[in-house]
Computed example of a mutant assay.
Amino acid sequence: MTILLLNGPNLNLLGTRQKEVYGGTTLAEIEEMTREHAQSHGFELNSLQSNHEGVLLDAIHDAKQSARGIILNAGAFTHTSVALMDAISSVELPVVEVHLSNIHAREPFRHKSYIAPVALGQIAGFGSQGYLLAVDALVQHLSGMS
């Protein structure tokens, strides 16, 4: 049982990028703590970060064959990508949307998510802890307890 963790543009800069907004935890640290948390629930976690929309689309398509669900921090693509929204709809896998910052308390353009309408739910504003909450939500959903 595998969960796919996808991170979008600029998230490779975590730990050095706008720490006042995104915190000081690196992406590698987030991936490791999320992997350990998923394993504690009996799930494997595969992770991928890309600054390229097409790579994320291909990963979502491939997940249909290799994963039970997806945790997605699409970064700025959250607010622009109809293609990611369509890919999620097409693969029919449960997706939990995650954001380190509270996108609803930031600039108005960040309030619109193209991912939210096709996701199980959205977790925003809890920093790196949001990834662990996403694992819990996805595991609960996959276990039929939601």
Rank of each mutant, 00 (worst) to 15 (best):
I30M: 12
L138I: 11
I3K: 00
V21Y: 07
E36F: 03
A38Y: 05
T26N: 03
Y131A: 04
F77V: 04
N102M: 14
Q140R: 12
L138P: 11
L45T: 06
S47H: 04
Q49R: 04
G125K: 09
G127Y: 11
L56P: 01
V135I: 15
A76E: 03
A134L: 11
H99I: 11
G144L: 05
R110M: 06
L45H: 09
Y131E: 14
V118K: 03
R106K: 09
N10R: 12
T2V: 07
L142D: 12
K112H: 15
E44C: 12
M1L: 11
N12H: 10
I123M: 07
L57W: 00
G125Q: 10
P9V: 07
E32P: 00
D58K: 04
K64E: 13
K64M: 08
G42E: 02
T34Y: 09
L27M: 13
V82K: 02
G42Q: 03
M33K: 14
F109W: 12
S89N: 06
A38C: 12
L14G: 03
G24P: 01
L120D: 06
M85N: 13
R35T: 15
S101Q: 10
I70T: 01
S90A: 15
H37Q: 10
F77T: 01
I3C: 02
P108H: 12
G130W: 11
G130N: 09
E29N: 02
A74L: 11
G127D: 13
S47C: 07
A116R: 10
Q65P: 00
L14W: 03
N12I: 11
S90P: 04
H141C: 10
F43R: 13
A74W: 10
L93A: 11
L14S: 01
G121K: 06
G42M: 05
A67Q: 04
T16M: 01
L14F: 06
L93H: 07
F126E: 08
V55W: 00
N46I: 12
S89A: 14
E31M: 09
A134Y: 08
S146P: 11
L84S: 03
T34G: 05
G42N: 10
H141K: 07
H79D: 00
I103D: 04
Y22N: 00
F109K: 04
G127N: 05
A124E: 10
V139H: 08
A124R: 04
S40N: 14
P9W: 05
V95T: 14
A83Q: 09
G125R: 08
A105W: 06
I103P: 01
V55H: 10
R17T: 11
E97P: 01
L48V: 04
L132V: 08
A124C: 15
L72V: 07
H37W: 15
